[in-house]
């Protein structure tokens, strides 16, 4: 019967740090790629809209776990050896780019088209209209669902354990393999996930409420 020691706790906290790091990487890279997906989805070029729609449908129609395997083993077979962190981050970048792209596209399209017209009538380019007029307004609408998606993302980083990335879930597995105290070990892991996710969902809900209050006033 093994005892749960402070050493184990540090090991878990170390895993948590990798979980947070992977989440941030996925959010950062996925955000950049997601912005590009959003642009492609609202493009005036039909072929770009088609291709990006196909991309989104493929990514949203397959499990993240499979994407993770494909990225890790697929790259390996292709002769590109990457650390588990990189494979996981790339898989999650692709995964989040599709979802964020769709969230942001919806936010942009929810802004009345007359705003675009007013801007273009003033001789602004489409890009200037987007950046100066549409995006600042879409941002308010996009923030709550984006933060909400981040919560999902943090939890989904646990899937990176399958490619051997030593994040929180994998760390808990490793400890449990020697201690055989699943309730305790995975319970602590759950609490740690919750400690990261709960403030985020709380924030998301506050933002949502603010947005609705603002709408009611208007």
């Amino acid at each position: 019967m093994g005892d749960f020691s402070s050493g184990h706790m540090i090991y878990l906290l170390n895993g948590l740090m990798w979980t947070v790091l992977l989440s941030m990487l996925a959010m950062l890279l996925g955000g950049i790629a997601g912005f590009a997906v959003m642009l492609a989805r609202i493009s005036q070029r039909r072929w770009l809209r088609r291709i990006s729609l196909g991309y989104v449908q493929i990514v949203q129609g397959t499990p993240l776990l499979i994407q993770m395997f494909l990225m890790y083993f697929g790259l390996g077979v292709a002769g590109i050896e990457v650390p588990a962190l990189v494979a996981a981050a790339l898989a999650m970048m692709i995964y989040s780019s599709a979802y964020l792209g769709e969230i942001w596209r919806g936010s942009v399209l929810s802004i009345d088209n007359t705003q675009f017209e007013a801007a273009e009538t003033l001789a602004l380019t489409r890009w200037q209209s987007l950046v100066d007029v549409i995006l600042p307004q879409a941002l308010r609408i996009a923030t709550p669902p984006t933060v909400g998606f981040t919560v999902q993302l943090v939890k989904n980083t646990s899937l990176a354990s399958v490619v051997g990335f030593l994040e929180l879930t994998r760390s808990a597995q490793v400890i449990n393999n020697s201690l055989f105290e699943p309730f305790l070990v995975f319970g602590i892991a759950a609490v740690l996930y919750f400690a990261v996710c709960y403030p985020l969902s709380l924030w998301s809900r506050i933002l949502e409420r603010k947005l609705n209050a603002g709408r009611r006033q208007a």
């Binding site: 007359t114 705003q115 017209e117 007013a118 273009e120 009538t121 003033l122 100066d132 307004q137």
Partner: peptide, 20 residues
């Protein structure tokens, strides 16, 4: 169209000011 629109102003029924 931008060179045209620099010479042509337009005002709409719904104002379409930028609220932000």
């Amino acid at each position: 169209p931008r060179s045209l629109r620099q010479d042509v102003g337009m005002v709409f029924q719904s104002y379409n000011l930028f609220p932000h």
